[in-house]
């Protein structure tokens, strides 16, 4: 019997190693796998590279992981937002490496990694600072730059419902980066608000088929705050 459910958060994070590249789903307050981030803080892995849209807010979740000195590098599109105080402090102090990636390029690098595509050309960033030192090709009269895919060791994902095979659905704007990060990591860990019986999720409505998911942990926390 396939059963990807694990009993607790410690079991969900087991084996995440020092130096790992960890993707963190979510956009704004919605779809953040906060319980998994807290569990990663407890788990102890360090020297991490984090892939996320934002660089944390306040002093909780991702910001707390960074404040604990466990993050070496962050790859994101929008590090500066309301309350990104920890990022500001660490970045100013030279204690955090930053790779800024346009949001759509970030999403496509993740999607490509999950799809086995090592690199792709995009017009995004051509002729700008973020396109410097990248290979340029012309297709049909337009310039494009080469971007490499972005695979990860671990993806932390928040779903609305998941079953023991790992099939997932998300809630409203909570799908965001979660569904693509789930495809791009060697170890995909899902925290889900609801656990569904096998067959209970309409096959037509499955967003992330279970093949992409390794572990499922039940975290019924309620609504996003903020």
């Amino acid at each position: 019997m396939i059963d990807k459910r694990v009993g607790d958060l410690a079991a969900a994070l087991e084996g995440v190693g020092d130096g790992a590249t960890v993707m963190v789903g979510g956009f704004g307050s919605v779809g953040q796998p906060n319980a998994l981030i807290e569990a990663l803080i407890e788990q102890g892995a360090r020297d991490l590279t984090i892939v996320a849209n934002n660089a944390g807010a306040g002093r909780v979740g991702l910001a707390r992981l960074m404040e604990a000195g466990r993050v070496r590098k962050i790859i994101c599109s929008f590090p500066r937002s309301a309350g990104s105080v920890v990022f500001e402090e660490l970045f100013k102090a030279g204690r955090l490496e930053l790779e800024i990636v346009p949001q759509g390029t970030l999403a496509e690098r993740i999607r490509a990694a999950g799809a086995g595509i090592p690199a792709f050309f995009t017009a995004t960033g051509y002729g700008t600072r973020l396109g410097e030192n990248k290979e340029v090709r012309e297709f049909r009269g337009r310039h494009y730059i080469l971007e490499e895919s972005l695979p990860a060791d671990v993806a932390l994902v928040e779903a609305w419902r998941a079953d023991r095979w790992g099939n997932c659905v998300y809630r409203k704007s909570g799908r965001n980066f979660n569904a693509i990060m789930a495809t791009a990591a060697a170890l995909t860990i899902v925290q889900t608000q609801h656990v569904a019986a096998l067959g209970e999720i309409d096959p037509e409505a499955v967003v992330t088929p279970g093949i992409f998911v390794d572990r499922v942990v039940h975290v019924p926390y309620g609504d996003p705050q903020g």
Binding site: G104, A107, K172, S173, Q225
Partner: peptide, 27 residues
């Protein structure tokens, strides 16, 4: 609805006929 925000992180609503999708489809 705490599950429905826009790119500016403000709460929004959805019209009938609206849809949700992930970031790769969005871009």
């Amino acid at each position: 609805d705490p599950w429905l925000i826009n790119a500016g992180k403000q709460h929004v609503t959805l019209h009938p006929g609206g849809s949700f999708f992930h970031h790769a489809d969005s871009f």
